[in-house]
Design a protein around this nucleic acid. Sequence first.
RNA 1: GCCGAAGUGGCGGAACUGGCAGACGCGCACGACUCAAACUCGUGUUCCUUCGGGAUUGAGGGUUCAAGUCCCUCCUUCGGCACCA
Length: 836
Amino acid sequence: MQNAYSPQVIEKKWQAKWEKDKLYRSVIDHSQPKHYALTMLPYPSGDLHIGHWFSMTPPDARARFKRMQGFNVMFPMGFDAFGLPAENAAIKDGVHPMKRTFQNIERMRKQMRSMGAMFDWEREAVSADPEYYKWTEWFFIQLYKMGLAYRKMSAVDWCPHCNTTLAREQVWGEDRHCERCGTPVIKKNLEQWFFQATKYADELLNFDGLDWPQTVKTLQTNWIGRSEGASVIFKTAPSSPPPFSPKMGEEKGGGDDIEIFTTRPDTLWGATFMVFSPEHPLVEKVTSPEQKAAVEAYKMQAARQSDIEREAVDKEKTGVFTGGYAINPVNQAHIQIWIADYVLMSYGTGAIMAVPAHDERDFAFAKKYDLPIIPVIQPVGASHDSPLQAAYVGDGVMVNSAQFNGTKVNTEKGRKNPGISKVIDWLASQGIGKEAVNYRYRDWLISRQRYWGAPIPMIHCEKHGWNPVPEDQLPVLLPEDVEWKPTGESPLKLHPTWKNTICPICGEPAERETDTMDSFMCSSWYHLRYLSPHYDKGPFDPKEYDYWMPVDTYTGGIEHATMHLQYTRFFHKAMRDAGVTKGDEPMMQLRNQGMVLGEDNEKMSKSRGNVIAPDVLVNQYGADTVRAYLMFFARWGMGAPWDSQGIEGSARWIRRVWTLFTDRTPTGAASDETKKNLRRNVHQTLKRVTRDFENFEFNTIISSLMELLNDMYKAREAGAVGSSEWSEAQEIYLKMLAPVAPHIAEELWTNRLHKKYSIHQQSWPKVDEEAAKEDMLEIPVQVNGKVRDRVLVSAEADEEEIRSTALASEIVQKFLEGKEPKKVIVAQKRLVSVVV
RNA sequence: GCCGAAGUGGCGGAACUGGCAGACGCGCACGACUCAAACUCGUGUUCCUUCGGGAUUGAGGGUUCAAGUCCCUCCUUCGGCACCA
C-alpha cells in the first residue's frame, strides 16, 4: 500500500467500486423515512463548469449527510437537453442537434462521475429522449383538455437573434433583452399557444408551508403583481359637445361601455378626463371629425415607437384629445377622452379614468394640457393649496364627492381602506362597478419557432380546427432529416412531409403544429420523471410518486425565481386539478446557491478568458479537495470570486488528514486531561457540523473540521494515540468527513482503520452532550463596557460565585480604584459586566 | 421611483438567542529542515501606540450595563420591477 496521498488512484478506485456495488441506488423502502434531494438539472452545453460543481457538490454532501442520518435519500440527475444553443450550433456547422446533445451528455456524465456524487444514475432522465418528451406532449394535451392551453393572436416578444417568440418571463432588464442571448426583443403580432397560468395567480401568491427564501417569494409576488380595486363602467357621451339639454339621450351616438380598472374608486368624483391607449378599440368611434387627423397622426407615431421608448419612465407625457366625451357614472359629468401612450393596452382595460388631483401621472398630463383638476381627498385638518401644486396621494377625508363627503380615506389598498370599501359597495349596488383585482401576471407563451424542442401535439384541420393528437399516437417524434436555416420559422414547417397528417376527427388531410414547446415546459416536470424514467404507462409510476414526492430540498440558482420556479409551481397545481399530482406544492424547501465568479471578480465567460475548468483542478488536486474548497471558499448562498491560491489551503488540509491517519505513531500515554479535552473537542465539533449541514452552512463545516484536525495533531503530540478517545476521534472524524470528501474518507476508513465497508453506509454519530460540556469557563469581565480581565470559574459555578470571582480579580480592582461598583451584571455564564 | 439582498483586516470569510469582534483559510513576515529551492513544520499577522493603553464591523444618530447583531436617517454595490391606472 502506498503511503503518499494519491487522489487520482483512490478516487477512481472507489468510484468504480461504489458503482459496481450500486451503493447509491435509491429504492422505495417503507421502513425508512424518505428524503428527496433535488438540484437543478444542467443544460448539456458540452463541458462541466465550476459553477455546476458549486451547485451540485455541496448539496451532494448534504444529501450524503441526510442518508447517514437514517433517511432513504434519492439524489437524481439528468439533462435539460432541448434548447437553442444546440440548434444554433447546427445552423453554423451542420452537426445535428441530437447528435451534439447526446455527445455532450456522454461527456458531461463522465465529468459528473468524477465528482464522486451520490447520483443514482438509474434514475437519470433526459428531456430530449422520446421516452421523456412523449410525456411532455401528454402533459400538453392534459392542459389542453382542461382548457388551460389555448391559442391567441397578440403582440408578443420576439428575439431576432434566436428567431423565436419568448415568454414574458424570458425578457429581461430595462432594454427588454432575451434572457438567453441578450439581444433586445421586438414585438410581433402572432398567433401562439399559451398556458393559462393567470388562473392560478392567487394560489401562486400563497407560500404557506413552503420553506423558501423570502427573496424568491418576493420576486414571485412582485412578478404576479396583484392589485385590488374596482372596475367601473363609464359610458361614451353623444357626439356633439354637451349642451345642457333635457333631451340628451336622444342625441346621436354614445352609450358605449368604457370599462376601466382603478385602485382608487374613492377618487371617482375627481375624474376630470379619461385616457385611452392609442390601440383602444373605441378610439375610432369616439374621435370627432375635427380631431381625426391629429388622432391618426398620434396613433401612427405611437405605433412606430418601440415599447422600450414608450415605457421610458421619465419621458414627458404626450397625448391628443379625441374630441369625444365620456360620462362619469358617479356624477354624470361630461369629461374629455384623450389618447396617450402612457396608457398601455396590455394592462387593465387599456383605458383609465384620470384623477389629476390624486395621481402624479394624471396631474402632469392635466397641467400640460390644461385640463381641470378637482381635489376630492382633503388632508385632515388642512385644506389644499389653490391651485394644487402636486398630486395629493396621502390620507384624508373625501370632499366634492356627494354623499361620501367626510368619509375617511387612508393609504391602505383595497378593502382595508374604509373609503375604497364604501365606494365599492355603493358602485355594486348601483350596478355601475364592482370590486376587481388586476394582475401584472400574463399567461405563459409556450410556442417556439424552433426545431430542437418537444413538438406541440396538435393538429389543425380545415373543418375541425385544432385538435390534440390522439394519446395512443404519442410521441409525435421529431424528424431527423431537417434543414437548418434561421428563417424565423421552425425547420419543421419547411420539412416536406412531416407536418402532413390526418384530422383525428374526420380523417381528412390535416396539418401538424410545427412550433415546439418552450423547454421550460420540459423542466417543469423532470422531478417527476426521475421517479421512474422508463415507466411507460404514464409520466411516472404512482407508487414511486406516493413514496418520494414532494421534493424535500430543492437547490439551484435564484435566476430562475420567476421562470422555472414559477412555471413548475403552476404546472404542479394544474396537474393536481387534473388529478395527476397530489398536494399543492412540488418542492417544500428551496435554497439558492450564489455564483462562482472569475478571479477578476467578473462573471466567468469564455470571451473574458476567466473560466476555471474543474477537470484541470480534479487532475491536479483530486475531487475531494475541489469539493472541500467549493464548500469552504465562500458562503454557499452568496458565492464569491475564485481564488487559485486559496484552493491550496483545502489541499493542505486534505493532505494533513491523510498524514494524520497514515503516519505510524507509537502509542503514547496521554494525561486524562488531554484525553478529556480531545473528546470534548470531538463532540463540540460534531454538534456544530450537524447543525451546519442542516442549515446549508458548508463553509463553517470545513473550518470546524480544520480546527478539530489541528486539535487532533496536538493531542497526538501529547500522546493520545492508542487510547479509546483517540479511536473514537478518528472514527467520528472520518464520518464527518465522509459527506465532504467521500473518497479519502472511504480509503482511510476501509483500508487504514480497517472498518467495515462502506463508510457511506454508516450512521451519523451521536453527540455525547456530557462529553461536549466544558469543565472550566473563562469568563470575560468588563468594567464600563471594556473587557479588562478574564477569570476562570468552574462550569458549575452559580451566579454569586462568578460575581465574587470577577470582583476579586486584581485587574478589576485596579480599574475600580477603590470605588464600589454601581451595578454588576452576570450575563448567564458568558460575561460579567461591572459598572462604576 | 418602488421592492429585495449585501457592506466586518491586504483577500474569502467567522461570531449560537444583544454578551471576549476578526474563528478557519489564503496571502505576507520571520524561523526550522535543505548545498539551495519547493514541500513540510513552527511562530507572528486589524490599525495606531509614549507599551499604560486607545481606536475599530459602510457613515451618522439612538436604545442598553453591553450593539457587527435592535431602532432611525443616510451612502455604496448588486438583483428584481417600473408611466401597472
